[in-house]
């Protein structure tokens, strides 16, 4: 059976469809899960799968948050994996506790990657100020997530940047806050072209907080992979900071301590004696 979920296939869409299929006892092995976003609009749409918002399915309480996050992953196999877990949970309530089970392990791996993507969004979104018509200041950010995480992370930004208007635009939808409500739009956005003078101050800080005597480039890249660099204002400095590091340390070592202390030091010393 071929099941094509609307658009990218959000959680509500998957849940209602999965309930319907489970009510009819359809085995996971007999379903081919797809989404419009993956297959495109088809000339002959498949017969809609049975949907059921009403059918009651009981699952352990850990399953819903796991499935909700899982369905945000960009891997097309997510729908099938979530349904297979749901199917297996019907006869094995403890399944999710068996962390070494291949399906459970895979679900946790996808879940981790969705969480990491959200965490990186919290970290690497960079707001740039734009002219505002009213009293509230306005900011716009451009971010490129790996997964469908924009809507589920809106609350974080709303709770944090409450006193300003902002928009976060991404190729996987946008969120907008105006002080009253958060709106989410599914359409892929275009990267805005905005300059913000504060970026220059931030680069000054970034260059100077770096300690050239402790160069650990690999460590930096594990946490801040290159794919994020193009949208981080500070990242343009990275190559020159790395290249210049050794020389700066050598210069510090070669330039012996100066023999004369500043005038105020002498004054301080004389005050004491």
């Amino acid at each position: 059976m071929r099941v094509v979920l609307r658009a990218r296939g959000d959680f509500g869409e998957w849940r209602d469809t999965a309930r319907g299929l489970l009510a009819q006892g359809v085995d996971p092995r007999d379903i081919d899960w797809l989404s419009e976003e993956a297959v495109g609009q088809e000339l002959f749409p498949p017969v809609p799968a049975p949907r059921s918002a009403a059918h009651r399915v009981s699952v352990p309480k850990d399953f819903l948050p796991l499935a909700e996050s899982l369905i945000c992953h960009s891997d097309l196999a997510r729908f099938d994996l979530a349904y297979r877990l749901l199917w297996r949970l019907q006869s094995d309530k403890n399944l999710l506790l068996i962390k070494s089970d291949p399906d459970v392990e895979r679900a946790h791996a996808l879940n981790r990657s969705v969480h990491r993507d959200g965490h990186k969004m919290h970290a690497f979104v960079r707001f740039k100020e734009v002219p505002a018509p009213g009293l509230r200041r306005a900011f716009v950010a451009w971010f490129e997530p790996d997964h469908w995480i924009v809507a589920r992370n809106a609350g974080f930004f709303q709770r944090r940047f409450t006193d300003m208007d902002w928009m976060i635009a991404t190729p996987k939808g946008s969120i907008v806050w105006d002080g009253e409500s958060v709106r989410f739009c599914d359409e892929p956005a275009e990267q805005p072209d905005i300059m913000d003078d504060a970026d220059d101050l931030w680069r000054t800080y970034y260059a100077n907080i770096f300690n050239p005597a402790r160069l650990k480039v690999k460590m930096m890249q594990t946490e801040m992979p290159k794919k994020y660099w193009k949208n981080l204002p500070e990242a343009v400095l990275i190559p020159e900071l790395i290249v210049g590091a050794e020389q700066r340390v050598r210069e510090m070592a070669e330039r012996a301590a100066s023999n004369s202390a500043p005038v105020f030091h002498a004054r301080l010393q004389s005050r004491k004696t």
Binding site: A123, F161, D163, I209, F210, P212, V217, M219
Partner: peptide, 23 residues
């Protein structure tokens, strides 16, 4: 800040907003 309408939040674990080449 959702109740105060101000600026800022702390939600459990901290966030690293950037990494310098010293890791």
């Amino acid at each position: 800040s959702s109740a105060s309408g101000g600026l800022g939040s702390t939600e459990g674990s901290g966030i690293c907003h950037a990494y310098a080449p010293d890791g």
